[in-house]
Amino acid sequence: MSATSATPVTAVDADVAAYALRLGDDALVLGQRLGEWAAKSPQLEEDVALLNLALDHLGVARSLLSYVGTIDGTGRSEDDIAFLRDEPAFTNALLMELEGGDFGRTTARQLLVASYQLPLWQALASSTDPEIAGVAGKAVKEVAYHLDHARSWVVRLGDGTAESHRRVQTGLDEVWPYAAELFERDALVDRLVARGVAADPALLEPAWRATVEDVLAEATLTVPETSWRPTGGRTGAHTTGFGYLLAELQHLHRSHPGASW
């Protein structure tokens, strides 16, 4: 957080709304993916653990999406925002929406996400936007545990059997290119960094890389090398699988317009 002069948050603030929506969509979409693991994990203890992660992300999503509905001036509820937008209106990073794949790939993604979200929420805990700072203050404790969980498993899979090493390396190679998008800057981020609302991606990336490389080294895994940097999530250009994720997420809610649940 670089700004020293905090701008008071006004009633309607399109920039803050757009930024909170990115964070909220990240949490919602990853929470949805993690929820797919119910009754499918490698062992019972892990069902409980993965669903804990899902609940943490869904909790963050609910707080942020509710906030979006107030600060963007539309008065939409968290459910309006989650269930009634089409694909192009979602601004989550592509990394969050990728299919979970096997436990190796899920775990690799968790490592990349948690290593990013830990410094992210740490920075946002002192955001000049009090709502975002509040969410961050709570999320930072949760994500510390997420990172611990991801690290524990990546190390065990990487340094476990030949089979597990192969699988987690494959999963890592598949999700790795999508991490670059997390650190992209655009005009919105620039404006909000200047206002002290958003975290500076330039400061997050070194922390992310240090954590990830440290874990991968302990796990005897190779840091993937790639020049491919898929992007588009922040502007609503999503992967094929995302449409199916939304279809599942939204169909029931949309089938009963105006109903309460």
Binding site: E45, V48, A49, N52, S152, R156
Partner: peptide
């Protein structure tokens, strides 16, 4: 009680299973 491959995982599983 619970099953875990090692002490590290046992502690984490215990957190999830017994202190929700």
């Amino acid at each position: 009680s619970l099953h875990a491959p090692d002490a590290h995982m046992a502690l984490r599983n215990a957190r999830d299973v017994y202190t929700r």
